[in-house]
Nucleic acid binder design. Structure first.
Lengths: 154, 154
DNA sequence: GTCGTTCTTTTGACACAGTAAAAACAAGCG
DNA sequence: CGCTTGTTTTTACTGTGTCAAAAGAACGAC
C-alpha cells in the first residue's frame, strides 16, 4: 500500500484508479498543508492555486478521496466535516470545545488500546474511534481574561 | 445529585430549575422508553401521548434537557443527533455502520480507561469520547443474503 | 382561588451542510 | 488524433437545526 503522506499525489490517485486532475491535486495539496480542513478551508486554499473551482467539485473530490482511502473524513459533534490525509495509522483527535480546533493524538498503547468493549450487544466490531475534548492553549489564554461562564459586570 | 434514570421526571425538571410541562414529561418518557432516539422518533413518541406538539418544541426541550444535564446528545458521524437519559456514567456507544442503530457499551476498565492521550498538543483535556463502529446482528443477517460489497450478477 | 410575572410553546422564516442530476468538459487509451 | 469514460460545472433541492416574535401556560404571591 502506498503511504498516504509521502507518496506523490498523482501516484496516489492513479493507484486508486482515479484520474489525475488539477482539482484533485490542489485538494490533496491543501490537505497536506492544512490537515483537519473543512470544505470551506479547502475551497479557499484551492482558489489560491487554481483559477476557479466550484465548491461542488471540492465536495466531489473529498468524497472520492475518502472513498478511495486517500483521505479520511472526521466529524466532531457540532461541526461540519473535516478531512485529513493521514489514514490507516490509528491515530485519534483532540478537539477544542470552544473554537473547534483539531489536533492529532497518536495512539501510545499501540493499536486499538483497551478498545475492546465489554459487551458488543451482538455487533460485529469493526473499529473504535476516540475523540478527546478539551480547550486549546489559545482559547485557554483568552479564557483567563474572559472566563467562559462569566457574566459581564453590571 | 439526582439519578437521571430512576428519579421522578418532574423532580428532575424542578431540580434543574425547569418548569414541569406536559411536553417535557412526554419527551423524558419517550427517551426512557427508547434511548438513542432522534428528534423524529421523539416527536412520534410524544405525538402518541399528547394531542399535538410542534417539532420545534421537541427541539427546545431536548436542548434544555441536554443543557441541564438531564439528557445527553450524541452525534455519530453522518447521522442526526440522538438523545439519551444516561448521563454522567461514562459509558460509550457502538453504532451500526449500515443502519445506524446505537447500543450502549459500558466501560469495563473503570473511568477513563487508558484514555490519556500521549500528547495533548497544549490542550486542556476535559473528556474522552469513544465510539465503536460495527454491524448489528440484524444487518449482519441481511448481509448474508445480500453482501454489502456484492455487485449484482450480470 | 385569582393575578401577574416569567418561562414555554407555537408559528413561520431562515441558515448551513451536504446531495442530486444533467450538461459541458477533459484525461487517458487506442 | 479522436473516442470513451470519468470529472467538473451549474442549478436545484433535501435534511437538520436555529432564530425570533407572539400566544399560551406554570408557578409563586397575595
Amino acid at each position: 500500500m502506498i503511504d498516504t503522506h509521502t507518496a506523490e499525489p498523482s501516484a496516489l490517485l492513479r493507484e486508486a484508479g482515479l484520474r489525475v486532475t488539477e482539482t484533485r491535486l490542489a485538494v490533496i495539496a491543501a490537505l497536506a498543508d492544512a490537515p483537519h480542513s473543512g470544505v470551506d478551508a479547502v475551497v479557499t486554499q484551492v482558489s489560491n492555486r487554481l483559477a476557479s473551482t466550484s465548491r461542488q467539485a471540492v465536495h466531489n473530490v473529498l468524497n472520492d478521496l475518502a472513498a478511495a482511502g486517500i483521505a479520511r473524513r472526521i466529524e466532531p459533534a457540532g461541526q461540519p466535516g473535516l478531512y485529513e490525509l493521514r489514514v490507516g495509522d490509528n491515530h485519534h483527535h483532540i478537539v477544542c470545545q470552544r473554537c473547534g480546533k483539531v489536533a492529532d493524538v497518536d495512539c501510545v498503547t499501540g493499536h486499538a488500546p483497551c478498545l475492546t468493549p465489554s459487551k458488543t450487544s451482538g455487533f460485529d466490531l469493526a473499529e473504535a474511534e476516540v475523540t478527546f475534548w478539551g480547550v486549546c492553549s489559545d482559547c485557554r489564554a483568552t479564557e483567563v481574561a474572559q472566563p467562559a461562564g462569566a457574566s459581564a459586570p453590571v
